[in-house]
Design a binder for these strands. Structure first.
Lengths: 250, 250
DNA sequence: CTCAAATATTGATACACATCAAGATCACTT
DNA sequence: AAGTGATCTTGATGTGTATCAATATTTGAG
């Protein structure tokens, strides 16, 4: 079959064959642990981090109620976090891309409240929390950085709350696309052409919409020439237009 | 005017005339800073905490974009936190009752993203973050407790996200009432009879509903004898029924 | 106490999104 | 390559909540 991708540029493959995996040479270290540490400090951080085999699509990184042991940085791939509510159904609470950290919900009661599942084959750096805590005593900057990560999670979730409280289906989808766009951009990937790692079902669940509404909204955004979509491929054709829609303009 | 309150028991007035204000004798210290500290440690914590004049209804504790300096524990009264979204309108992100801590959003970028406003006259304990950080180095338990506070904020917000994503108006209102009920209960106040500190507008904003829907939902819950409401007074008459509704039963 | 402004209630109607239903396309498995 | 189940799209219809509108009640000021 010929390539008929709507995304012209070839997709940057995450190279998992770094000569030597270490925080020092990881190209994500400006996002993940952007602490201005000395070389030996980075080395110390590097030593506590464990890198297991890649997670395949659909595999769990951890499950709700598992004992909290570690936080995890996504090195490549993508994952979703979800909780099970009282009535039994799932709620996707977030998508996490390379350089981002999951597991911060685990500190509250010493067990995770979310389950985390790979959306595609993903490499993960495990950061045992006990060791991180010890290291933090010596490295106040690391300590502070960790607090910032948590605080950012809080403010990000407040944005989601605002989105779910007020925004139309169109604004919700637009916001999600812009969020992914921004995050890709900070990882030096294209801000306008990318693959969605998650299914329509996941998007709908996350944004409080049915998959039919998600599908129709994508169709409408395409018809109005704001984006082009083909399955999981997305091309943002009118960033400003999308930003207007995300704000609630019509 | 005769008292025609639907709440039989007299409301527990927050006594602000403790013989001497200190974390050691604060009756909220099991909620606010439930760290098993030695007496001298509590004393140290106590020393860094500042207690200003009470905040009157409508007054700001801090405003979005103010430089982050402190976190704040509510000692009496109640406050709301809110953000302003891109399109300019407010989003109430949370209500905070005595023993609860606000300001954790400020760490992300060294300025607050929320504004916090008193819903009624409130006494607040200011905890300068720099001092807290210093003290934490000596008291690992305090450090850990602070991380737990943040993590709890994260998991609580995820519950709100789940609520806003799926739940009906009735389930949202039921959840809020149960949340306040539980929190009152942990403060040794009545779990079934209390005053709502916030307006219908605030409730609607927080839960992603219009005030008309809030009003109608209260009316419906009253008609089905699950609660009794009169303005801000609430009496939960059927806790189990309310829990069922919160879960999405009909 | 009286008035004005803010807040809350209640009713009638409209609409955005859910639900129901049918097909289409994709991605595995054999 | 064919078959099967998962995922996605598109259409027709229904419904919960928003919106619009009018009135009632409460709160605060003078």
């Amino acid at each position: 079959m010929e390539s008929n991708s709507i995304i012209a540029q070839t997709h940057t493959k995450q190279c998992t064959h770094d000569q030597k995996l270490s925080c020092g040479n990881c190209r994500l270290n400006t996002i993940c642990m952007p602490v201005s540490l000395h070389v030996d400090d980075i080395d110390q951080l590097n030593k506590i981090i464990q890198r297991g085999r890649p997670l395949n699509k659909g595999e769990y990184l951890y499950r709700a109620n598992d004992t909290f042991t570690s936080v995890y940085a996504i090195r490549s791939g993508a994952v979703k976090a979800l909780t099970i509510s009282d009535n039994g159904d799932e709620q996707v609470t977030g998508f996490y891309l390379p350089g981002e950290v999951v597991g911060l919900d685990g500190l509250a009661n010493n067990n995770y409240t979310n389950s985390v599942i790979a959306l595609e084959t993903s490499s993960i750096c495990e950061i045992p929390f006990g060791r991180l805590e010890e290291l933090s005593v010596q490295l106040p900057k690391l300590q502070r950085h960790f607090l910032q990560l948590m605080s950012r999670e809080i403010t990000h979730e407040q944005q989601i709350i605002s989105l779910l409280g007020k925004a139309s289906a169109e604004a919700r989808i637009a916001s999600l696309l812009l969020s992914i766009s921004t995050r890709n951009s900070s990882r030096k990937l294209s801000a306008t052409a990318f693959l969605l790692p998650m299914s329509r079902t996941d998007i709908g669940n996350y944004l409080g919409l049915t998959i039919e509404t998600v599908s129709r909204t994508f169709a409408r955004l395409q018809k109005t020439d704001v984006i082009a979509v083909d399955k999981k491929e997305v091309l943002i054709k009118d960033v400003l237009g999308l930003q207007q829609l995300a704000k609630g303009a019509e």
